[in-house]
Design a protein around this nucleic acid. Sequence first.
DNA 1: ACCTGATGTTAGGTTTTCTCACACAATTAA
DNA 2: TTAATTGTGTGAGAAAACCTAACATCAGGT
Lengths: 132, 132
Amino acid sequence: MNDQDRRSMPLFAIGIVMKLTELTARQIRYYEEHDLIHPERTGGNQRLFSFNDVDRLLEIKDLLDKGLNIAGIKLMLQEEMVETKEVLPKPTSNELSDKELRKILRTELTDAGRHGKTNLRQGELSRFFTNH
Amino acid sequence: MNDQDRRSMPLFAIGIVMKLTELTARQIRYYEEHDLIHPERTGGNQRLFSFNDVDRLLEIKDLLDKGLNIAGIKLMLQEEMVETKEVLPKPTSNELSDKELRKILRTELTDAGRHGKTNLRQGELSRFFTNH
DNA sequence: ACCTGATGTTAGGTTTTCTCACACAATTAA
DNA sequence: TTAATTGTGTGAGAAAACCTAACATCAGGT
């Protein structure tokens, strides 16, 4: 079992995720509804979150604080997905404009980061539970 | 927040602990009842386990497999506690014989380990969720 | 003033967990 | 052998946590 497997293992009920992220259940479910996260489910349909999920939620929270809306956040996170994906589907014209958008957003945020709190970008929560 | 804090942070409901350890709820509660573990509780009295708790449960399981009973296991784990404690209470005559017992047990187990499966001794589960 | 997007709140139902009690098989003790 | 003890299974009833769905609210933007 490699590191990525561990980080994507479903472990946390929504209650603890609320505490870890300081988000409400409503918010967390809303973000799932809009495809920002995809937690697993128990046999009885209860959400089970992984470290990755919690990390994403912390990113979402941070991006919201920076003024992004769900659509913008989705693009940002989608960017990360693509970066770590194997083969990209051949870009449609729509994807191209998405890429443009993401570029703009990223520039914007990087700029904002220069005189605000630091950009997180990766593994906020995992950094807590990981040695180095 | 240091590593030990992270490892003792209450995170897991009993359901996932069951899966992680392959123990039944009955067993887990029984071990708690006999002071082998001390999981936290939510405001609503539900158990919340830490990485350390899960590690201990895996140790307990292993020691049970090796034929120890609860009393023996308690001594073993108590040994570990003592090793990481600040100031030891001045040993009573009873404590002395405990120490003797632990020594015997440890020898026994170490010996058994030499021609069985390897001795675990530390952080079984954490090893899963920790880089190096 | 009117949308829309994000979140709060409430209701009713289901799942998970809780304690407590009793059963039982396997040891250990008498 | 018979009698306690130990570790675990199982079931009942209650409480906690979670689920979806609906409606409310409130700030921004048009």
